[in-house]
Structure formats: structure tokens, C-alpha cells
């Protein structure tokens, strides 16, 4: 996994509450057996006027000009500003894969759905929770053309264009993994001995769990 330390980027405000993973990446694209290539179908139902199917040439599709992702001033955005309960619904990791593939490395919202939040960290995306009022203020400021934010993970700080800084909370273990780009499986396999000890103890307590 890529390390995440600092990022400065254009902010794309997506002003909708409860954006679900079906909206982030519709089900027909989940048929892929790969991890990559989901970016062109990010927010497919909102982004295009026609119905998307796997294997289509997306460059030839009819764009929805009203959808914010298609507006010129937000091209190259790497920070997604969202409303509460972002990523609710299914556990599909295709949602963070699509966001990352499109170019979003940071998502700021008042709240995230638990599974989505967790999936972000597995892919080097930093989801930042900020109070509703602060997010509202960022939404208001983001109407400024070229609005950018700077995110510093080691310092847990966001710097606004006027120099004001906002601090954010993040779990220590998750921060450690993101900053160092650590692979979870490799970390867990450092504890093979403890896993085996647990299994031996558990076999005595609950042998039926080891029978079939």
C-alpha cells in the first residue's frame, strides 16, 4: 500500500447525505474480478445520462453536465467533501477502489458508514470525520474557484486557503499503517505464535468449532 503523509488538492463538494455504495459504484461493475479500472464508473448513475454496462467505452457515453464531477473547475480533485453517513450500504470494497482509481485520496464528512470507513484505510484513502458545522463551513467555502485544502496526516491537521488550521482525530493504529504504508496481513503474520496459542486454548474450550 502507498504511504499517506501529506496531500494538497482541489476539493470537490458532493452535497448529498447518505451517499450509498450503490451510488458510488453500481452493481453491474462489481462483476469484474480485478481491483483496478473502476474510476470511469465512479458515481456512474449520476455522472452519465445513459445506462452504463461493463465493457462500454466510457469516453463515448453521454455525460450529465449537471453533475459536479463533470464540471471543468473540479477536474483533478483529490479531496472529496461529503455529507453525513457517506459510504452506507454494502461492504463492496469496489467503492474505495473506484474513488481511489478516479483520484480521490481524502474524503471529509461528518460521518462515514463503518464498513466503508474501514475499507478506505485498507487502500490508502484517508477518511476524515469533522463536526457537521465545520463541514458546512467547508461546503460554503468550496464555492470559491480553485478551492484547495492541505492535509497533513502525521500532524492531523487540515490547512485552509486562509491559513486557518483544523485538527482531526484518527485511531493510532490506522494512522501508523497509513503513514508507513503497512500491509495488514504482513503485520498479523508477525503474531503467528499467538494465533496458534489461541487456537490451542480454544480447542479445549470449544472443540466443536474444530470438528468440521
Amino acid at each position: 500500500m502507498e504511504k499517506f503523509i501529506k496531500l494538497a488538492g482541489i476539493v470537490l463538494p458532493l452535497d448529498r447525505a447518505n451517499v450509498d455504495t450503490d451510488a458510488i459504484i453500481p452493481k453491474q461493475f462489481l462483476k469484474s474480478i480485478k481491483r483496478s479500472g473502476f474510476g470511469p464508473n465512479l458515481f456512474d448513475q449520476w455522472r452519465y445520462l445513459d445506462q452504463g454496462e461493463p465493457g462500454m467505452d466510457n469516453s463515448k457515453r453521454q455525460i450529465n453536465p449537471d453533475f459536479i464531477l463533470n464540471q471543468a473547475r473540479f477536474q483533478g480533485a483529490s479531496i472529496l467533501l461529503a455529507r453525513d453517513n457517506f459510504g452506507c450500504g454494502s461492504s463492496r470494497e469496489h467503492a474505495p477502489w473506484a474513488l481511489l482509481d478516479y483520484g480521490f485520496n481524502v474524503i471529509i464528512a461528518p460521518g462515514f458508514a463503518d464498513i466503508f470507513y474501514n475499507n478506505c484505510f485498507k487502500n490508502g484513502i484517508l477518511p476524515i470525520k469533522l463536526p457537521e458545522k465545520v463541514v458546512q463551513k467547508l461546503f460554503e467555502q468550496s464555492v470559491e474557484p480553485g478551492y484547495q485544502l492541505e492535509v497533513d496526516l502525521p500532524q492531523q491537521l487540515i490547512t485552509l486557503p486562509d491559513g486557518e488550521t483544523l485538527s482531526f482525530e484518527i485511531d493510532g493504529f490506522r494512522k501508523h499503517c497509513l503513514v508507513n504504508g503497512l500491509d495488514d496481513i504482513g503485520l498479523t503474520l508477525e503474531h503467528v505464535k499467538q494465533i496458534k496459542e489461541y487456537e490451542n486454548k480454544r480447542k479445549k474450550q470449544a472443540p466443536w468449532l474444530f470438528e468440521k
Binding site: R35, G89, S90, S91, R92, E93, P96, I115, N118, N119, K122, N123, D184, I185, T188, L189, I195, E199
Partner: peptide, 30 residues
Amino acid sequence: GDSHTSTHGALGALAFGIGTSEVEHVLATQ
């Protein structure tokens, strides 16, 4: 790897949905 894994809690099991990275993690490490 499915959010509706919560279903199985009806039988007194701690059951929850995970993403694909975690599917791989469970396969590899239990």
C-alpha cells in the same frame, strides 16, 4: 464479504460484513 452478514447474529454469533482486503486477511490469518 457482504454487509448483510449481520443476519447471523440472530443465533447469538458475532457476525459482520467485511471488505475484500479483509476477506484476504481472514483467509490468510484466520
